[in-house]
């Protein structure tokens, strides 16, 4: 078992914990832990820039957004929480079976990927790629961020009206 395989197993374990946890706060923390494991894998596979983004944005910012959203919603009453917990266990009881069956199925299928890049003459610096070859991606990112900001402004304006 290589270190990569171990890290992948840790990522899968964290993702299972994320969906199985009854508390939403624990789910958000599980997602952050999954991001941390993915970050380590990124560093190991020669993607340091993406790893830094993943660590700071996905493990940091997105977790803060989730925790803020969870804290702004009202927690369930004790009786409702027990019922919700039972329903949660009932709904997720087949997940382990499904994951195990898929894993065993893939092992028996014995798939062999067989591809090579058509061309290896590409810039080696991610910044050069982003600024010189993927300018439309950057343009799209800017539009998405502006649309997101406008969306939040509109949503919170509506929320303010409702609360008044």
């Amino acid at each position: 078992m290589t270190l990569d395989t171990f890290l992948l197993a840790v990522t899968l374990a964290f993702s299972l914990w994320t969906v199985m946890a009854k508390s939403l706060l624990r789910s958000a923390i599980g997602l952050a832990a999954t991001s941390v494991a993915v970050t380590v894998l990124m560093f190991r596979l020669n993607s340091p820039l993406a790893a830094v983004f993943e660590l700071s944005v996905c493990s940091g910012l997105i977790t803060v957004i989730f925790i803020s959203t969870i804290s702004l919603t009202k927690p369930l009453a004790a009786k409702e929480a027990i019922e919700a917990g039972k329903a949660h266990v009932r709904r997720f009881r087949y997940l382990f079976v499904l994951v195990a069956a898929a894993g065993i199925g893939m092992l028996f299928l014995n798939l062999v990927p067989d591809f090579k890049p058509h061309c290896s003459a590409a810039a080696s610096d991610a910044r050069a790629i982003l600024w010189n070859f993927r300018q439309m991606d950057l343009f799209g990112q800017i539009i998405i961020i502006i649309v997101g900001a406008l969306g939040v402004v509109v949503l919170f304006a509506e929320r303010g009206k409702d609360e008044r």
Binding site: S47, A126, I129, Q141, F156
Partner: peptide
């Protein structure tokens, strides 16, 4: 890896905006 990192950064930006906007919708 350079091209993959560029695409991953784009995916991360989309992830953040999605989390923010859908979080706002959920609060609404």
């Amino acid at each position: 890896t350079a091209l993959a990192q560029g695409l991953i950064i784009t995916v991360i930006v989309i992830e953040v905006v999605l989390a923010v906007v859908v979080g706002g919708v959920i609060l609404s």
